[in-house]
Design a protein around this nucleic acid. Structure first.
Lengths: 160, 160
DNA sequence: CGGCATTGACTGCTTAGGCAGCGAATTATC
DNA sequence: GATAATTCGCTGCCTAAGCAGTCAATGCCG
């Protein structure tokens, strides 16, 4: 197949999607974390709250998947958030193994103060982007995520 | 300013560059790590070797920056790589505080066997991308990285 | 030149993430 | 419908990452 984008002999860090994504991710953290810290939130805690707010996940399992967070570690994060009254845990009625999570009023309030800070930082980071460019970046990232999903599924399926 | 891309009241995880970048990063790890593990490398170790190979960094300090890795943690990673004979440390002549790093022949050899695996995974993840789309994704990621850099510099400068 | 601040790598300590195993609950299989 | 296999969240242990402080070397300013 000659239609592969990368080739082993010319592949380099600088032109690698994987590296650029890693770098962008790291810089995003550097950009966002200080603002959250002022309000006593770690990025992980913030991410969990947002995932719940936006119905990206309703239970610990989904959060682990969507945030790629370890199940054991997440239990402890949820303990903290619950202790601070930002999140509530309820045992599910349908599946009594599972737990339903939802934000408390305080959880919503916390996000209400913190989200604008995050938005400000991100807007600032993309201030030289035309709306079309940002749209395109979002589209391509989503496409990349789909591709990675498929790739990973293939790979696990191949050995099973 | 009405030309901001995001607004606090409509911002959501799903349409967030930051979240998508985080997710893509996490999935990249899931995709790449297993292959590296088969050759006894963690992703972090691999990233350090690549950074050296591609002259992204020549000393510990630059690696910390480019890989956003903690200085203390990096010392330990380098200890491991040095112990395995993949990397050498040499005290710099110009600045005797600094250390010059470079790959050994074994280091290069290790990458030679591992890079093709990584390339294969990435190619597979972007197999539905046209070359133009991949080019555009790289361009936009680089632009985002520049924007984040500027944003962070502004922010640190503002309080100084 | 002498003192003060800064930088670069490293060490010790703390915290968070990864992993293996558990118990309870559900689903699949026969 | 009983048993086996899987799933979900949690706990304990271990490793790795983050943080603060140290030491040597450099840069800065008088």
């Amino acid at each position: 197949m000659s239609k592969q984008y990368y080739h082993a002999d010319t592949y380099s860090t600088r032109n690698s999607v994987a590296y650029l994504v890693k770098r962008a991710h790291g810089l995003s953290l550097d950009s966002i974390e200080p603002g959250l810290a002022e309000h006593g939130l770690t990025f992980t805690q913030y991410a969990v709250l947002m995932a719940l707010r936006d119905d990206l996940a309703l239970n610990p399992k989904d959060i682990c998947i969507k945030l790629r967070h370890d199940s054991g570690a997440l239990t402890r994060v949820l303990d903290q958030l619950e202790a601070r009254g930002l999140v509530e845990r309820h045992r599910s009625a349908e599946d009594r193994r599972a737990i339903e999570l939802h934000l408390t009023a305080q959880g919503h309030a916390a996000l209400k103060t913190v989200v604008p800070l995050v938005v400000k930082r991100i807007n600032s980071a993309i201030k030289d982007f035309s709306p079309a460019e940002t749209d395109e970046l979002l589209r391509l990232l989503n496409k990349l995520i789909l591709g990675l999903h498929a790739e990973i599924a293939d790979q696990s399926g191949a050995s099973a």
